[in-house]
Each structure stands twice: as C-alpha cells, then as structure tokens.
C-alpha cells in the first residue's frame, strides 16, 4: 500500500481537465473526465513529447496540444492511424482523495499495449 501517494482532493481536479504531478523529474498528468473517472498518464505525448495535461479532454481521450494526436487515457495508446503509447499509472479515489501509484511505473494493460508497438 505504501506506494500509493495522495496527490489531491478529487474536487480540485478540473472536470474535463488535468493537473500535473511532478515527482522528481517525472511529470504525470492526472485527468478527470466528464463522467468523473480519473486517469494518470505520463505528461509526454508519444509523438514529440507534448504536454498531454494541456490538451482538450473528450470522452476518455485527450487531444495533444502540439499536433493533435489523440491519446486514450485508459491505455495510453494513440488513436489510429497514429501509433504510439504513453505510459499510464494507476489511480484510486477514496473518500474524496485521489491517490496515484508511481512505483509500478506503468500498469499491466499499458505494458501490453505499449509492447505491441515496440
């Protein structure tokens, strides 16, 4: 359990927006969708490293602000025909508090889908 870190109050996450969490040199974008789901993705677009946290969120996708790639927040994968994958992290919401799990680096699902593009 110790690798879960409390990062923010759920209410402090903007709906259809993101907050950036910086841990050491790693920047993680924590998103909240219109249906109040929370996702965490490394804040670097698989295209040219654009800050995904600054993109427009729609459904469970974010459109990167630099060149409009669309990234699936759940898997980190770019929507076809673009190809690439951003690392994802696990999140949890409990009692109005958002937790982020950094230790594992990335979730199993993301590892799999990223691997398929390697």
């Amino acid at each position: 359990m110790s690798d879960w870190i409390a990062i923010a109050k759920f209410d402090d996450l903007p709906r259809m927006g993101a907050r950036v969490v910086q841990f050491d040199t790693v920047r993680v974008a924590v998103f909240r969708t219109s249906s109040d789901e929370v996702f965490a993705v490394k804040d670097a677009c698989p295209h040219r490293g654009g800050p995904l946290s600054q993109g427009i969120v729609h459904g469970t996708l974010v459109t990167c602000p630099l060149h409009n790639w669309r990234i699936d927040l759940a898997t980190g994968e770019a929507v076809q025909p673009d190809r690439g994958c951003a690392h994802t992290y696990q999140t949890r919401v409990e009692a109005g508090q958002v937790y982020l799990r950094l230790a594992a680096g990335k979730s199993a699902a993301a590892t799999e889908s990223c691997a398929s593009h390697a």
Partner: peptide, 11 residues
C-alpha cells in the same frame, strides 16, 4: 489558480 500550479511530490 489551479490551472497554473503543479503538484510537487518529493521522495
């Protein structure tokens, strides 16, 4: 304000 603030975590 939140738009411009990064949440920093130190180990």
């Amino acid at each position: 304000a939140a738009e411009f603030q990064t949440i920093r975590i130190t180990a």
